[in-house]
């Protein structure tokens, strides 16, 4: 029982983490909450499903829909954030928050118009799934792939940020836009690439969760949105390792509260624990916002 729940929690947490990493990346660079991230997550899941429906193999549909999510995210930046940035409406302001909500609603409406309001699954046999066993835990090959792909993408992101010139540029823009400009960094281009990466990560999370539960629906974005926000606050706003840690923590909390307590209190228990953690560490588990005020 415990092994099984641990495995379930880790598989769920991996997707939460992948979703939250893209969310927190945008926050880290621009100091804005991108509330359209969940719409990109959902829309990309539908795109992957549609491509598979047209006969594309799942792996190819995954790559194409991930790219779609990245591009949609760049469009989001150009439409919703860049015009406000150009007028000097910076992070912390409500304008960008509202325009990201607006963009998200438009995306949700368009997806509903094209694909309808019902939850749909992948065609039989499209996503091959054998049962695997480790210890007392049983899970599917998809569960395992979700975990592996999520971990790989998160590792690639941290390597990119740590060891490449693009990563240095992103971190420089995150820390101080003016200093980054004076160092010759093309700030707008760097922000655009950040949105591309964040959108692709969010899209991948959506596609994977759709395949894992074999359910793609218009509400899946809304369901993960607040959880994603909770995860990045819990991990520490703007912190990538914090988002990963927070994602796994939330996945485990949810699974264990269903297994050992009650499924009707799943969210209540998970969020109550978050409350407690935030009382002890207001900046989040790995947050260092205080250091940035200087």
């Amino acid at each position: 029982m415990f092994d099984q729940q641990l495995a379930n929690g880790i598989f769920l947490g991996a997707v939460y983490a992948l979703f939250a990493v893209g969310y927190t990346l945008i926050f880290g660079v621009l100091d804005i909450l991108n509330l359209a991230h969940s719409a990109i997550f959902m829309a990309s899941s539908f795109v992957a499903l549609a491509l598979v429906g047209h006969g594309m193999p799942f792996w190819a549909a995954f790559l194409a829909a991930t790219a779609f999510g990245g591009v949609l995210s760049v469009v989001l930046d150009r439409v919703a954030f860049a015009p406000l940035r150009a007028r000097g409406v910076g992070g912390g302001a409500l304008g960008p928050l509202i325009s990201s909500i607006a963009f998200g609603i438009i995306v949700v409406s368009v997806v509903r118009g094209i694909f309808g309001p019902d939850e749909v699954g992948y065609p039989a046999g499209a996503v091959v799934s054998a049962n695997l066993h480790i210890g007392h835990a049983t899970f599917t090959a998809i569960d395992l792939s979700v975990l592996v792909i999520s971990l790989l993408m998160m590792i690639m992101l941290s390597l990119l940020l740590k060891a490449t010139s693009l990563g240095r540029a992103i971190r420089a823009v995150a820390e101080n836009t003016k200093a980054a400009s004076l160092l010759g960094i093309d700030v707008e281009r760097t922000i655009g690439l950040t949105f591309l990466i964040a959108g692709a990560l969010g899209a991948a999370a959506g596609i994977l969760i759709g395949a894992q539960f074999n359910a793609v629906g218009i509400l899946m974005g809304q369901r993960i949105e607040l959880k994603g926000l909770a995860v990045i606050i819990l991990g520490g706003m703007g912190s990538i390792p914090g988002a990963v840690l927070g994602g796994f923590l939330l996945g485990l909390l949810e699974v264990f509260s269903v297994a050992y307590l009650s499924s009707s209190y799943r969210d209540a228990i998970a969020f109550a624990v978050m409350f407690l953690i935030l009382i002890v560490r207001p900046a989040g588990l790995l947050g260092k916002r205080a250091a940035r005020t200087a």
Binding site: R168, R171, E175, N176, A294
Partner: peptide, 10 residues
Amino acid sequence: PEGRLILAQM
């Protein structure tokens, strides 16, 4: 620039 604007976290 004035105030140096070094990237303190890097």
